[in-house]
Amino acid sequence: MTPQLVSATAPNGADHAAVPSSRQADMADMADMAEYLLWLGDDALVSAQRLGEWITNAPELEEDVALGNIGLDQLGQARALLSYAGELLGRNEDELAYFRDDVDFRCTHLVSLPRGDFADAVVRLLLVGAYSEQLYAALTTSADERLAGIAAKAIKEVRYHVEHAAGWAVRLGDGTDESHRRMQDALNRAWPYLDELFDPHPLTDHLDGIAVDPATLKEPALQRITAVLDEATLTVPATQRVAGGGRDGRPSEHLGPMLAVMQVLARAHPGASW
């Protein structure tokens, strides 16, 4: 593991003293850029991994197919982002996915929460989707052309995911007493983790014009979410936020077990091709 490569701070060890200052700045930018790509890539990968757990477990066969499609979109996003990060870090997508420990991941806690019931899946897809919708829309104009390209593809996919989640949120929220209760419970469970998505972070200041300040996404994303919740006759929870820390190497308790499953085979055969 080389965690310093993915550190949020610019490398400033003695080794770098001989490096000309402009190159040092480039390397700092590269490390920051890679770090930002891990934010986005890890969120997408961990979401896809959770959706993968749904296949063969959906409430109706048609929904198995639908969740599979969404998972495949997210996995595609993760691969584009991690490949890019990997090029900056001298590692490939699989080394990043399979040979980093949970503390080296940069995903938020919300995406790594346990699978839960179908209401949890719908709520998470809605909350993360509404955030991603704003995020990728903003990133389509990123000064980094490759990231802008990834965002341009992702935004079309994410809009559909939000539509899918919104449709279900309304059906379940305004369905039966049981489905309403389950949706409200799921919403209450997820809500404390929502704020972490929008926490400001010094990293995005370092990447001015390339990255997006997450705090600026909050209002439009919340607008979208509350409009759906209104139609679904659900109440915005008044719960306090929890601490978060996923972007800074303080992952949720659930990430480790998830990665243990995801990585078990790859780590049993280090250096093998598949």
Binding site: R79, V261, V264, H269, W274
Partner: peptide, 10 residues
């Protein structure tokens, strides 16, 4: 959930 590469997982 355990596919050994992202390509194989997809």
């Amino acid at each position: 959930t355990r596919a050994p590469s992202l390509h194989r997982k997809a």
